[in-house]
Design a protein around this nucleic acid. Structure first.
Lengths: 207, 207
DNA sequence: CCTACCGATCGGTAGG
DNA sequence: CCTACCGATCGGTAGG
């Protein structure tokens, strides 16, 4: 076999189900996608899915928990690196946007359908999310403590940045004019300019 | 009768239905909210709603088209004012965030459930939205042409700002530490700092 | 993995 | 605005 599948672990049926479900959920939403929609996209009968899954909600959980882990794996290392806050934040923006675009449909399902998880999992994913977003709040707070960033509301700035990045799958097209890397650069520029101390050289800021 | 209703036009049954539906859609989503959920929140039987509405989707359309109009009414006047781009953009951010917070549930339904509109309306709301977002793209482009803002990707900057503002109902709480006005101020500051020409006084920018 | 089925619920209507 | 109902579809299961 010379040509490999474009997807990552699409060899097993289980993985195919997750990929197909993710694609359908991301476009139509979890509640508007039936188990039979997923099955027929795989040329299966409705009930046949249950040889591989235990419930529709378990599929949702699988999609969401996996992409949550991808975000953490990609961003936590650069967030906790030894470099300056400015450099760390720029690297985090690149890492986050990379995941958001590479796992576009999974990320969309995460952000749009987490409400439909049942109760132990719903609260768990919110905790994971908060723990992750704390990485951004922390770097911004670090930048202020180090004097690189002006003093302002760090959690609000983190939310501003994160919500803008998380909306990218809603409008991004791989055929569009801008690559993921260019978008990440622009977003980091816009954010950093808003944070960095003006008149950093301490001359010429006496307007 | 001394005490008035807290809601705006809650006198007619139709308006009560739209308000109730908006509250339920915004929390659980359009597809996860049944016509009977709306009815029972109003202490009615399921079928009784159809004395006032023609379909569930018409209710969705009413909610979405009205809040879309609210956005336009609030922002278009300040977007087309005679003032400088910097001042106009700041005023637009305030006006937009005001609508987003004052009509929180309607705005959430707009952003999260427009996909569930049927076809003539779905494309219509997308056109309205694009026409509206063009106001932001235009002011940013104006600011660049006037030399107030540095040259960059204006549509991308507009998307960055709009998506961040539109996510506010997802985390904002009226009991929280920050008022709508303070959030608008901070968001405008963060955005404008990212756009405005550095070293505007043309001295001290020779790093 | 299929056929055939389960009870529950969906949006909507008739007829008052 | 209610009672009673419609056909369609839902997530999930039995038994092979």
């Amino acid at each position: 076999m010379v040509i490999q599948s474009a997807e990552t672990h699409t060899h097993t049926r289980k993985e195919q189900i997750y990929e197909t479900a993710s694609a359908l959920f991301s476009v139509n939403g979890y509640r508007a996608t039936s188990v039979r929609d997923i099955a027929s996209a795989l040329h299966l009968q409705g009930g046949s899915l249950y040889a591989h899954i235990t419930s529709k909600e378990q599929v949702l959980w699988e999609i969401i928990s996996r992409v949550a882990e991808s975000f953490d794996n990609a961003v936590r290392p650069v967030a906790t690196a030894a470099s300056a806050p400015t450099d760390r934040l720029r690297a985090m923006v690149h890492a986050h946007i990379n995941v958001v675009i590479r796992h576009s449909s999974h990320a969309t399902v995460f952000f749009q359908d987490w409400r439909h998880l049942n109760e132990p999992r719903r609260v768990e994913v919110l905790a994971l999310r908060d723990r992750y977003e704390a990485l951004f709040r922390q770097v911004i707070a670090d930048g202020m403590a180090a004097g690189e960033f002006a003093e302002r509301d760090a959690p609000l700035a983190a939310t501003y940045l994160l919500t803008a990045m998380n909306a990218i799958p809603g409008w991004y097209s791989p055929d569009g004019a801008r690559s993921a890397h260019e978008i990440a650069d622009d977003y980091a520029d816009l954010m950093l300019a808003g944070l960095i101390r003006t008149g950093a050289t301490e001359k010429g800021s006496t307007t």
